[in-house]
């Protein structure tokens, strides 16, 4: 019995990288899902499961940057909602749609700027500031639409959200992959990305090394605001209608995907590869649950549990490793001093 337990712990300890674990998890989900229905593995299904959550995973990209930078933006889904609602309201007020879209993107930038100002320059905790703004921006969105639902946008706008643009891919998916490539290049290969990691590890070291810490944080929040607004507009285009609660509660999925991807909640470490794997896991999991006829609400509960697990598991993992180290040290102790 004891031996069996040791074997299990040993194999756990060997699984060193989180990404390896994610790959394993993904494979398991793939296998289980494909057993349920043959349609699961079809290209169209795989594209569909992306499309169903495409707006969230676009925001995951900027959220990854922020969490690596040891900050967070809980207000991103509210900015999505605000941009969508404002666009709809402007449209009903007779503003030409292209102009409305541009204004909404600008508002996204302003929201990010506002967040960043308090966090980078007034040194307030990003958790509290963006929590407050999560409420505030959502409130503003409701002010515009009250309890109405607004649709009936021009045909070209709806098609942009729904029709495949290149091959089988609609615009939002192309936007995601373009942003993904840009994000990988910036985070993993550029000087700016290096600064993001250094600040996440230790903002003081960065400041003492001449890094413009405040500017980096500011840029990240502005980017987060802009991308969130963009995602909100794409969401509006896909649904063809907007309500005050558009994108409400998306923070759960977004943060889950980032943290499950191995990004440390304390900042300083993580990779977009891991995050991409976790995006695939969450999407396929949701898809699988839909195939198994589980309701959307139940899926939300599972994602919530997954979020906790994604942080809890590495902690347990680390404790197991520490236990092993202690045993090694105990062995080494026999040497005389």
């Amino acid at each position: 019995m004891l031996q069996k337990r040791n074997l299990f712990l040993n194999s756990l300890a060997k699984l060193k990288s989180w990404e390896g674990f994610l790959l394993f998890l993904l494979a398991v989900i793939f296998i289980i899902n494909s057993q349920q229905t043959s349609a699961y593995l079809s290209v169209q299904n795989q594209i569909n499961l992306f499309i169903l959550s495409i707006e969230k995973i676009i925001v995951v990209l900027t959220m990854t940057f922020l969490i690596i930078n040891a900050e967070i933006d809980l207000s991103a889904p509210s900015i999505m909602g605000l941009a969508a609602c404002l666009m709809a309201w402007l449209y009903t007020q007779g503003v030409p749609l292209p102009l409305a879209l541009a204004i909404c993107l600008l508002v996204g930038v302003l929201c990010g700027l506002f967040n960043g100002l308090w966090i980078a320059y007034a040194n307030l905790s990003s958790l509290v500031v963006t929590l407050a703004m999560l409420i505030c921006y959502r409130g503003l969105a409701r002010v515009f639409l009250e309890d109405k639902s607004i649709g009936g946008f021009p045909e070209w706008f709806n098609l942009l959200g729904q029709k495949p643009l290149i091959g089988p891919f609609p615009l939002a998916m192309i936007v995601f992959f373009v942003l993904l490539v840009i994000a990988v290049v910036i985070l993993q290969y550029s000087g700016f990305g290096r600064h993001v990691f250094v600040i996440g590890n230790n903002a003081e070291v960065a400041r003492y090394s001449g890094v413009r810490v405040k500017r980096v944080k500011m840029l990240l929040y502005v980017a987060s605001g802009f991308v969130s607004a963009l995602a909100g507009l794409l969401f509006a285009a896909r649904l063809g209608a907007v309500r005050g609660d558009t994108a409400l509660g998306f923070e759960l999925d977004i943060i889950t995907m980032v943290l499950l991807g191995g990004v440390s909640i304390f900042g300083g470490s993580g990779s977009l590869f891991g995050v991409f794997l976790s995006i695939l896991i969450v999407l396929n999991l949701r898809n699988g649950m839909s195939l198994a006829n589980l309701t959307g609400h139940l899926q939300t509960g599972v994602i919530g549990a997954l979020l906790i697990f994604s942080v809890l598991a590495p902690n347990i993992f680390a404790q197991v490793r520490a236990a092993f180290r202690r045993r090694r040290v105990a062995a080494a102790r026999d040497e005389a001093c």
């Binding site: 550029s190 230790n202 070291v205 960065a206 300083g268």
Partner: peptide, 23 residues
């Protein structure tokens, strides 16, 4: 606390203040 980012490599610590030079 103020000198080096401990989890990062020797090379990225050395280049940090002069990063634009390597870009």
């Amino acid at each position: 606390k103020l000198g080096l980012t401990m989890p990062m490599s020797i090379a990225s610590n050395i280049s940090l203040p002069m990063l634009p030079r390597y870009m």
